[in-house]
Amino acid sequence: MLYIKCPYCGLRAQKEFSYGGDATVKRPNINEEVSSEDWDNFVYMRKSPRGKHVELWQHIAGCRQWIKVQRDTATHEIFQTAKVTEEIR
């Protein structure tokens, strides 16, 4: 079970969180024209990197905040966590 540091609550067990997918995907702006290619990329296309990856988790059984987690998809090592408003390099 992973041990995830919520930027608001501190280190908590994985069972308090829910996984939310790739954090590097940006939704096209609302009310703006978007090409179907860009839209399809947003909805469907995901890289499946082996190694470092920034993903979203929600602390559902805690503060209910969505957070960013930089995790190694192969080893599960977590390098960094951040608020969604913060950048992870």
Binding site: S18, G20, R27, I30, L56, Q58, I60, R64, Q65, W66, V84, T85
Partner: peptide, 17 residues
């Protein structure tokens, strides 16, 4: 119920803060 709440929170916190 639970999924919708998470869904709304997702858009408010991440997409349209």
């Amino acid at each position: 119920a639970a999924n919708v709440l998470s869904h709304l929170e997702y858009y408010l916190q991440i997409v349209w803060p």
